[in-house]
Each structure stands twice: as structure tokens, then as C-alpha cells.
Design a protein around this nucleic acid. Structure first.
Lengths: 342, 342
DNA sequence: CTGAAAGCGCTTACAG
DNA sequence: CTGAAAGCGCTTACAG
């Protein structure tokens, strides 16, 4: 491996001059040309460790995702990778594997590696997070959740909930069940539901609420329990995975979707188009939010400034899993055929 | 940030001693105790750049995946991450985004960053790959494809094909269509098909072969074309995504699965359990191969030695998408109801 | 525009 | 077991 000293010698200049050339400092045209030639001939690439050791900064951005195998995380990473690359930064990924402790640990590791900044996709923000952010003292961008003290980039969760509420109402449903998740997750557990509730509040209808976990299996179990009891004509899951669990449970109970029961979700995962019937959902733009996150952290790193809150738009994707009811009058009696469970 | 000099001063010893303590050299019990206390009190962590600059090695393993949003890649990364962590290494991820050029570029970048080793999941291995490997001169492990000159870790593709061939035969199918992919992909395009062919070769049956791409959309288009023409009673897609495309096309044509047509795939993606009917497939253990890859590269890095070829077992997952035919006699006439296309 | 020198925070023979 | 010294490959004031 060639070093800067080798190049300097070959060019007959000092290391300083080579370094200056490399970093865009003022160098005469003649030496610039010479250096350009020699460097490409020798395929010289500066040692990043030495650079970072001296300059005390790197071109790496640490990205902490809750898990590696979720549609949302994958798409967001793709977006981040893309925009970071275009700005000359490298994306480092750490998976927290759904554990808060590992999220904290990942922040420490990244800080120690002197990344230029951190993008974090948390499910919750605890005091421990806050204090870790504080003493990491690094540019930080939150994605998917917001916090008043840190730049945040979120999906329009409230809006998404509202859209879905209005949509099912418009389809004539008057007895609605929302299967949500813990309110400790502000974005999904609270905002999404709040938007939904407010849409329903403007109409005469009955709304029930239940809670389950993020895991499809759990949602299915909950649904197996709930479905035989409820008289709701539509069930809205707080995420597509929950909706998918609902569909599986409904299949198992011999319910026809959307004939006997309508189902909808949130997220726009690719799987929602594969299932039968295709799932009506609110589509989130994970790729977009990823790109914005990349831009954002670069700006935070280079200019130490970015909006405290940025949002990424959502849109409803109407497919086949929600039925149009003719009878739009509120009624407890179901009119869609009986529930012939297995 | 504290440096090793600070710690040395506080302990009243030299930097050398602190460094020796840190790296497991011989240090007296007394100073060992003292150092231990001071370091944890001061929360001292060595600067990785300085370490790497001097020691000329790092504890990072570069992992190059074809894409970030595939089930196979995600699971494999999870496995790699896990075993690397347990050995004190860090996983660095680069996505080639399906482009060979970016795969090559990623190898260069990792080499420049002085990673300890590289795990590569290629779709093909070109001469350009080989020459890049050669001058990167780094421990390298191939995952999912094999090459005679480099340690490789593969799924039992041939075996998988054989299993599936035998299974559909056992189910009484005698007219079979295999929807494969380009043979430039040795693992998927060649081996999987070869195993399948050899299983069929042992019985009297008719086998047709067609080709499509890896993308579900393409598979669906191909299927829309193929389905109305073929008289096969079962179609086997070379990947689950292809099988999923087949299912979608069959649905669109009004074919009932598995009543009118049986469908099977390879991979064991999580989505195969969600679709209706659940897909019969050969399940690959991506998590396992990921863990093995982690172990393997660590061994290559530390002992410069590992088997040239290691395999990860597969198993068939029988679900609902393949029908049992009563009539096991070869016959061109289908007996499963007519094809009432849309 | 250019160069000499100091220094970033470690590790590693070498001598004791 | 311990320390002084050199050096890894860069960057950055500083002086010219």
C-alpha cells in the first residue's frame, strides 16, 4: 500500500501539498496535474484511519433499525443508503433486534467509532435514550417517532388514521373495530388511532377498540378470540401485519372477506398485494422517508441545522378487503350472512 | 474523551503498560486491579482509529448482499450479525442493489476500510469478481454460490430440487412444469433444476421447462401466458417469488389451487404461509447459513483456514398448494375440472 | 502556493 | 513485569 509520503516523493513535493491537493486546498495548476496523474497511476487511496484519527471525523452515518427483516426497515434502509451514497457518506447498520438495551448499546458503539451522525428508528423513546443521546453528543435524527428535543422525521400517522376512518365510514360501515397496539408507541399506538377516532367522532357509528402486539401470530390469536364475539362489519388493524393476522383468523373461522367481514390495515407492505383478497391499507412511503432521513442527517452533520419535525405523506390504497355496505344506517344487525365457523 | 495517556497518568504507569493490560499482555496483579478500576471509572474506551492505524487490522467484517429487501438476505444478515457479535466482530453491510458493478465497488471500499474479512452473497461470479478478490487480498467467504477457488457456503440446492421432484411425483403428478431462471445463476438456475430433473428421470412422466426472471411480476406475466396452454397438473417455480407470481396468475385466470392446478416453490419465505392456499415449498435455512457464515469468516480471519465447501440443509414444507392425484397413471387428459379463465 | 514540524491515540519491539 | 521511544499515515496551523 502506498502512503502519502510515497506520492509526495514521486511528485517531488511535500506531504502537506499532497494532503492539500486531496482536500481541495490551494495548489498550483502544475502540481495539481502532476499529482492527479501520479495518484491515479499508483491507485493511491488515503488510509481512512489515519484521516479519521487526525481529522477526528468520519464520513459514516450509523443507522439503528429495530430489526433487519421488516418491510418498513428494509425500505427505509434502501432510501437512506441511496441518499447517503450520493452525498459521499457510508451507511453503517446496526440492528437492535427489538431490544431497547441493544439500541442503547448501538448508540454507544457508533459514538465510539466516531460516526458523523446517527439515524435512529426507535419504537419508543425512554429516558435512557435521552441520556444516551446527550452524552453521545452527536448529530441525531429520529425516524418514525418524534421527540420535541430532537430532529424527527415521521410518517403522517394521524392523517393516516383519519383517512382510514373516513374511508370505512364512506363505505357504509357503522360498526367498526380497531385492533391497535400499546400506546407507548406514540406513532402507531397513539397517533394512528387518534386520527381514526377523530374521523369516526364526526359520524354516528359504533366503534370498539382492542389491543394486540405487533406480531402477526399474536394478532391472529387475538382475532380468533374476538371475531366470534364482535358484530363489527369491519376490523381495522393498526398495522398490515395485524391485518394479515386478522385475515388468517377469518379464513380459519370460515369467514369470507370482504363478504362476511371487511378488513384493513396500515403500512402498505408488499405482502398486502399478495394475499387474497388484496388488503386495503394506508400506504406509507418508507423509501421516501429513508431518502429524507439521509438528506437530513447530512445536513445536520454539515450545517448542524434541520427542521425539528418533517413529515412524509401517506395515501390510502383501496383494494379488495373492504366491502361497500348498501345499508348505511346504523344497525346492530349484520346483514352479510351468518358466521359459519369451522 | 480520555486517552490512554490520561489513564496511564492516573494510574502512575506508562502508556505501554495500559496498552498491555488492554491487550492481555503480562501485567502485575496490583496494576491490573488499579487499571481495571480506573478504566471503568473513567469509562475509557480506546480510539478504534488509532488502534487500527497501528495494528493494521480491524474487527469489522464486510457483508455484501444483493439487496436489502429480500427475505433471504434479511435472514442471512440476522444470522451473520448474531454470530459475528458473539465473536467480538462487527458486521458492516453494503447492498449491491442487484448490480455487479456495485458488488465490485463494495469489495474495493471494504478493502480500503481494512475490514478483517468479507462475506459475499453473489448471484453470479464473473472474472471481474475473481480479479477483484485477488487484489483485495482479504479473507473471503462466498454464501449461496460456490467457486472452486474460494471458501463457499451453500444451500443444498441439488438436494432441494430432488426432494421437490420426488414429492410431486409421490403426489401422483405425471405432467409437470418447472418454471426456472437463468442458468448463469448456478445455485438456483442450474443445481436446483438439475436435482429436480434427476428425480423425475427415474419415473415415467412428462416434464416441461420454461424460464422467467426472479421478479414476481415477471413470473406472473410469464404464467399468464403459460397457464392457458399447459396441461401440466403441477407447476414448480424455482423460487417462492416465482411460485407466488404463479398463484396470482392462477387466481386471475380463475383457476382453483390446488384443485385445478398445483403450485410449489423453493425458499420458505415467510410470505408463503400467508398466501391462500399456503404454499408447499422447500424451506431453506437462511438464519443457519448466516450463522455459519459468521463462524466461517471469523475462522478464516483468525486461522486462515476453513473448508472449501460447506452446506446448509434444506427440508420440504408440505402445505396446501399441491394436490394429491388419485390417478397415478400417466395421462394427458386432465381430470381436475376445466380451466374457466376470466 | 509550499514545506517543516508537531501531533492525533494507539501498539510494539527493545532494553532493563 | 515495566518504560522510553519510534512509528502507523494522515492533517493542520505556522511561517515563508
Amino acid at each position: 500500500m502506498k502512503t502519502i509520503a510515497d506520492i509526495a516523493k514521486m511528485a517531488g513535493v511535500s506531504k502537506s501539498t499532497v494532503s492539500r491537493y486531496l482536500n481541495g486546498g490551494s495548489v498550483s495548476d502544475t502540481t495539481k496535474k502532476k499529482l492527479e496523474r501520479i495518484i491515479s497511476e499508483q491507485k493511491y487511496v488515503p488510509n481512512t484511519f489515519a484521516q479519521s484519527l487526525k481529522a477526528k471525523k468520519t464520513a459514516m452515518i450509523g443507522t439503528i433499525v429495530p430489526r433487519l427483516d421488516s418491510f418498513a426497515a428494509s425500505q427505509t434502509m434502501i432510501g437512506i443508503d441511496e441518499s447517503l451514497r450520493s452525498h459521499g457518506y457510508q451507511m453503517l447498520i446496526a440492528s437492535a433486534n427489538q431490544e431497547i438495551a441493544r439500541e442503547i448499546e448501538a448508540i454507544h458503539n457508533f459514538a465510539r467509532q466516531k460516526v458523523a451522525g446517527i439515524i435512529l428508528m426507535p419504537a419508543q423513546i425512554t429516558k435512557e435514550h435521552i441520556s444516551t443521546f446527550r452524552d453521545a453528543d452527536l448529530p441525531l435524527l429520529l425516524v418514525g417517532q418524534q421527540h420535541p428535543s430532537f430532529p424527527s422525521l415521521i410518517h403522517e400517522d394521524y392523517e393516516a388514521g383519519r383517512m382510514m376512518g373516513e374511508y370505512v365510514l364512506n363505505q357504509g360501515h357503522r360498526h367498526i373495530l380497531f385492533l391497535g397496539v400499546t400506546e407507548r408507541d406514540i406513532a402507531v399506538g397513539m397517533e394512528r388511532k387518534r386520527g381514526f377516532q377523530e374521523a369516526l367522532a364526526r359520524h354516528e357509528c359504533r366503534a370498539d377498540y382492542a389491543e394486540t402486539s405487533f406480531r402477526m401470530q399474536d394478532a391472529m390469536k387475538t382475532a380468533l378470540h374476538l371475531l366470534p364475539q364482535t358484530e363489527a362489519t369491519v376490523i381495522v388493524g393498526a398495522t398490515d401485519n395485524i391485518a394479515l393476522g386478522l385475515i388468517k383468523a377469518a379464513h380459519q373461522l370460515g369467514l369470507r372477506i370482504p363478504l362476511d367481514l371487511s378488513i384493513a390495515g396500515f403500512g402498505g407492505y408488499d405482502t398486502t398485494e399478495i394475499v387474497t383478497p388484496a388488503l386495503t391499507t394506508v400506504t406509507y412511503n418508507y423509501l421516501d422517508i429513508g431518502k429524507k432521513a439521509g438528506e437530513g442527517i447530512v445536513q445536520l452533520v454539515e450545517e448542524a441545522d434541520w427542521d425539528l419535525l418533517t413529515t412524509s405523506p401517506v395515501e390510502i390504497s383501496v383494494r379488495e378487503s373492504v366491502d361497500k355496505k348498501k345499508d348505511t344506517v346504523y344497525s346492530i344487525t349484520k346483514e352479510t350472512g351468518s358466521n359459519e365457523g369451522t
